[in-house]
Amino acid sequence: MGQDVVDAALEQMECVYARPDTLTDTRFHYCPGCGHSVVHRVIMEVVQEAGIREQTIGVAPVGCSVFAYNYMDVDMQEAAHGRASAVATGIKRVLPDRFVFSYQGDGDLAAIGTAETIHTCNRGENILMVFVNNAIYGMTGGQMAPTTLLGMKTSTSPAGRTVETAGFPLKITEMVAMLPGTYYVTRQSVHTPNAVRQLKKAITKSFQYQKERKGTCFIEVVSNCPSGWKMTPVQSNAWLVENMFPLYPPGDIKAPK
């Protein structure tokens, strides 16, 4: 088939999806099937569609998504491990009319950064906090995270997490929902196309609330880690539904009426 034929066929087609300008052309470094790239894309789609790129500043974490700024084509700062919400606070306080979001994993947000997370939410910082929970430290090679499920095997819980040695999985999203500073707290996922659409709606709402200065918006994304979980992407998504959702059920935890 000649190029002219292809071009002619393309002209007949309707563009239903394109890479948003707010994503760079850099190929994601994430493992096949990992949810991070989907979450990156959805945030950037919202920034593009809302037309707020010139007002948006993101904060990247330490962890697998440390290089988020290589993909998200907006002004970004890379924070120290756990400190993304403190860095975002600093940005937002001096630039209150900008849209500021932080992006963190479970080890970053719910272990080393617990104090910053709680106090950012308690102050009601007018930012969006995105929390990707895959119950494992992916970048360092699959160690136990604060959100690791009981019985779940990781490199630092090889026989499965036990309460006796490691305590309970931390439901930090429910914790921050209790704080009066949070305005919108929701748990989403990216394991199906419909779930991705729901996440996109949550992010859109969060930026709208930020514009209205309502307080902290907090979105947990229950995600997977095929490499760390030692599964195929398809297996990991099935495992996520069967094992993660019972403890971390999707849906709004705190939503404005």
């Binding site: 400190r83 403190a86 860095v87 606070t89 600093g90 940005i91 937002k92 001096v94 104090a115």
Partner: peptide, 25 residues
């Protein structure tokens, strides 16, 4: 803008964010 942080750890990271946003801090 004056913010009493939850710790010195948070305070210095707020400085990072605000300095990176171009403010004298």
């Amino acid at each position: 803008i004056v913010l009493q942080a939850e710790s010195e750890v948070a305070a210095i990271n707020m400085i990072y964010g605000a300095a990176g946003a171009g403010a004298r801090v």
